[in-house]
Design a binder for these strands. Structure first.
Lengths: 163, 163
DNA sequence: ATGAATGCAAAGCGTTTGCATCTGG
DNA sequence: CCAGATGCAAACGCTTTGCATTCAT
């Protein structure tokens, strides 16, 4: 969401790619051109992306990539802890890149324009811990989605806001 | 979740059925034997049920019911505000009956035994309101799921707990 | 060279829909 | 009567899989 310089973005992607490569080697898996492109674009785009959207983007760099490969790579990313599958109720699974520094944010989805806004609230997280503890549970991960409408007359979050 | 006497359950179902019938009439829709059975079983079972599970149950009462009818009825229930579709990541949509008295609860899902526990925490709700307000949004509905593991050595929430 | 990854197309799965038939109001 | 509901099967959209080929190590 926050604006990000090209350098920052490149640094972030490079870091993520490095971590990913390491993990691949650890797991005895191979690094291929397709896999690398998919993962790199996934980290570069850095948004809740669907397999479909990712494939479309990746094909600009590697036209002959098939969707099976995208799905397989996405699954791999999830298994290796680099992505989290999300379902926002629009019929397709979206994948959320996990940055080490922002391990677990929540979402507010505008019911008017479907824009997805990320947020993080410490008070909320504390309360959740407390709730789980009271029930004798320890939270592993959470999924918090607020479906809300904008209160400003003309919803400011229209998709045509240059991304 | 809470134990419920047969009378209570019957009363609850009757009330829900009445409300549903009213809504049907208001909307100029018809009450049919199939529809009634599906809706009644849905309210009676009163859990996060999948179309599949509901169909199986309903067929004990009306064997010739097709799954299209179940899906259509579930959709109707959602449209009319009697059910909320939920996705817990197991590949199929589950439907959560809405009781007037418990309009919007949240869920804790045991990662060990997949048991789904409902809860409701006012402090949590208040905080959520505040978060949305700060962002200039008004929450329409929320989806909060805590995936957590039980801290008691032998997870007490095993599916074989008589339902 | 050898096990893993790819690309394609086919299959799979949950869900929706077209259509002829039936039914409630 | 006639709009709406049903049941069946076919269609659907997203995702997964089988298999022959290619590629990284």
């Amino acid at each position: 969401m926050a604006e990000q310089s090209l350098e920052e973005r490149e640094a972030r992607v490079a870091e993520a790619m490095e971590a990913f490569s390491e993990r691949l080697q650890e797991a005895g898996l191979k690094s291929t051109k397709q896999r690398d492109v998919i993962v790199e674009r996934f980290f570069w785009l850095d948004k809740h992306i669907s397999a479909d959207e990712l494939l479309e983007d990746v094909r600009e760099h590697q036209p002959r990539i098939g969707y099976a490969t995208v799905y397989r790579t996405l699954k791999l990313l999830v298994e290796q802890g680099f992505a989290l599958p999300k379902d926002f109720g629009d019929g397709q699974t979206r994948y959320d890149p996990i940055h080490n520094q922002d391990p677990q944010h929540d979402h507010l989805i505008c019911v008017d324009c479907r824009k997805i806004i990320e947020f993080n609230d410490d008070g909320l997280n504390e309360r959740i811990q407390a709730i789980a503890e009271k029930m004798q549970y320890q939270v592993r991960r959470k999924k918090i989605e607020l479906y809300a409408e904008c209160q400003i007359p003309a919803c400011p979050n229209h998709p045509d806001q240059s991304a």
